[in-house]
Design a binder for these strands. Structure first.
Lengths: 139, 139
DNA sequence: GAAAAAATTTTGCCTATAAGAAAAAATATT
DNA sequence: AATATTTTTTCTTATAGGCAAAATTTTTTC
């Protein structure tokens, strides 16, 4: 099982590869706001655990295992962003909050949040009712 | 700012004091499933940061700061448990999931989850509609 | 009520994870 | 080929926990 920190890296690597076709140490460092040296160390660990194939100085690619995990992580991340957005959390908090909690929820909870998102998406009235509760509540 | 781990300790100490009037190293160790020596170390740190007053071998009490923080942490914990319960997460996952995420949500998100819980609590029909979505979704 | 035994707490030292800083190595650019 | 950029290595730091031995307190027994 990957640690939370490993998951952060796998997720970002997966996203970078999706969007640009490759992932570089410096991109990852920038995205996660850590030093390149920390990235190198994590990449070596992810290679050891077979989430990716690493050749030093040359780069790395995700293994099947890495891709599969990455896909789930991205799905989960997006779902949680949707959820926080729907319930009205401010944009500037969403990314950090998702970043913080995504590694700590059971798949059971993720599934239930998925249902909840569907519940709101399939009937706009429900979102409006929620906004009503919020409005009433705030004063 | 307390670290997540410090928050765990403050929360448990607060709960123990609420329910029993005092908190012992061994109780905390048992609850958190760590060694007593780890508890002692954290208690010393919490004393240094003025969340509690510590006298070695004799015990400790929460400061005003510690009580205030503890109260908020317990409120947040209970809110998140309510939330997961309402959306239908299984009992055996709730405690761990809350334990995992509670330290990583902004108060903005906590407030919005609070509204959401209120939304469901004030009209049982809404919970039933959610269950409908879940049922439809599962097959 | 003092001595011995048991339980609790603390200290000290070690481990693991993850990150930071600076220097070294490899690669890319001009 | 010289220079600039990127990546890696090495060493250090911070947090938190594990384990064993020592210190202290509490309980039991006589």
């Amino acid at each position: 099982m990957p640690t939370p920190s490993m998951e952060d890296y796998i997720e970002i690597i997966y996203n970078l590869i999706e969007s640009k076709g490759y992932a570089r140490v410096s991109d990852i460092a920038e995205t996660l706001e850590v030093h390149p040296s920390s990235v190198t160390k994590m990449v070596q660990k992810l290679d050891k655990d077979e989430y990716l194939l690493y050749e030093k100085y040359r780069g790395f690619i995700l293994t099947e295992k890495g891709k599969k995990v990455g896909e789930r992580l991205v799905f989960r991340h997006e779902l949680l962003e949707d959820f926080l957005e729907i319930i009205g959390v401010e944009k500037e908090n969403i990314y950090n909050d998702v970043e913080g909690i995504e590694h700590h929820l059971s798949w059971n909870s993720i599934d239930r949040v998925g249902d909840l998102v569907k519940y709101f998406k399939e009937d706009q009235k429900r979102v409006e009712d929620l906004k009503e509760v919020q409005k009433r509540n705030q004063q």
